[in-house]
Computed example of a mutant assay.
Amino acid sequence: MSEFSITFELFLLILGLAMAEVLQGFARAYKLQSRIRHGREPGLEPVRIGWLVPLSALVLLCHQATFWLYLYEVRGNVPLNFLSILALLALIGWYYLISAAIWPEEPEAWPDFDAFYMAHRRFVWFGVIAIALLGQLARATYSIETETQDPAWMFRLADGADTVGSLALIALPFVSHARLALALLVLVLAHFAVIAAVSPWIPV
């Protein structure tokens, strides 16, 4: 066990808090809709949640789960020093900020969640793209390659899904049309579904 492995649990805790922040958004949105539907707050205006924010939250959770796998893979090879601790804290702290921005802090202040998505999409997706690139760089630097005997078609399927998901993710910050953004989010989630299906045989 490396020295860095000792601090691994601390960073997992912070990452878990970031994921909990995303999940809490689902809970707040559900409770708000429930209060409106049952007339508990008669003066409260109806809120349209739509699909963009919930699907974005699901995409973010999938990326955070992937980042957790990267951390697990490299944990034994990362040297323990102040720079490595600061770098990882910055990455996971960045994830936490994105998690806090994916849902409205006060849902009733945004009658249409799609408008909230459009107002914050660049901060969210540029952040996710940057963290994903840094995570891949760290993985390439510190992971140990292992030989696998998996079928070639599985690798081609995983590589194709990665390509489609990456291109869709890169396009998301620039798309201001709701239907196109929705289609791209579905593509990214479909990519994660394919990766999840082949993950028992091919590492993420």
Rank of each mutant, 00 (worst) to 15 (best):
Asn81His: 02
Gly43Ala: 10
Arg75Trp: 05
Leu86His: 08
Ala65Gly: 03
Thr66Pro: 01
Gly76Ile: 04
Trp125Arg: 07
Glu45Arg: 14
His120Arg: 13
Gly39Arg: 07
Leu55Thr: 14
Ala109Trp: 10
Leu15Lys: 00
Pro42Asp: 10
Ala27Trp: 15
Leu13Lys: 06
Phe26Ser: 06
Pro111His: 14
Ala18Gln: 00
His38Lys: 14
Leu83Asp: 11
Ser34Asn: 09
Gln33Val: 06
Cys62Glu: 12
Ala115Thr: 12
Ala115Gln: 15
Val47Lys: 06
Arg40Leu: 12
Pro79Glu: 07
Phe123His: 03
Pro54Asp: 03
Arg35Ile: 03
Leu91Thr: 06
Leu15Met: 02
Leu55Gly: 03
Ser56Phe: 03
Lys31Thr: 11
Tyr70Pro: 00
Trp68Asp: 05
Asn81Ser: 02
Leu88Asp: 04
Pro107Ile: 07
Phe26Met: 06
Leu12Ala: 08
Gly50Glu: 03
His63Val: 05
His63Ser: 11
Leu58Tyr: 08
Trp94Asp: 01
Glu21Ser: 15
Tyr72Cys: 06
Ala87Gly: 11
Gly39Pro: 06
Trp103Gly: 00
Glu73His: 11
Trp125His: 15
Ile129Gln: 07
Ala130Leu: 12
Phe11Leu: 15
Trp51Asn: 15
Glu21Phe: 01
Gly76Asp: 07
Ala132Cys: 05
Glu45Ser: 15
Ala87Val: 13
Leu12His: 11
His120Ser: 11
Trp68Pro: 00
